[in-house]
Amino acid sequence: MDHEIYILIVEDELEVMDAIVNDLSEFEDHFPIETANTAEEAQSVVDQIYHANNEVGLILCDHVLPGKNGVDFLIELQSHDLARNSKKVLVTGQAGLEDTIQAINKARLDHYIAKPWTKEQLDSVVKEQLTNYVIDRKYNPMEFMAILDSVKLAESMRANPLTDN
């Protein structure tokens, strides 16, 4: 890859943020992690990442945040030319039914993790979503075989005619 694929975590409680970052340490070498405490800060982090010609592969977002809430932030991202492709995961204990429906219908939410989560659960969701992201974006699956879901990546290679040379 000639550019980085970021994981963005949006969370206002510091202990929770630390826990997520810690749980995702095995991805950090390949997918740098950025954090934001509010939706407004997250918006500017997203812009910075794309401005530097990198991209956001995955957003893990809390719902209840000071200021704009997580679901509204994710819905707004849908009108962002590039970040609309990012995989979006809501990590929350407090999103009501109405918010959740909004997130699915209007922000094309990819996954919902209810707090509290386990490290295994979080890792497997992140792995799955990043795998889907690199497949959707048609990146060379071989670059991610060792870290993401290798079977799914191999399957995607099978589906696209491959050639000897």
């Binding site: 290798s150 079977v151 191999a154 399957e155 290679m157 099978r158 000897d164």
Partner: peptide, 15 residues
């Protein structure tokens, strides 16, 4: 193709 075969077989052996 050798390559397509390898990709398919990887889905068999990786598990």
């Amino acid at each position: 193709s050798n390559t397509a075969t390898t990709a398919m077989m990887m889905t068999v052996i990786l598990p």
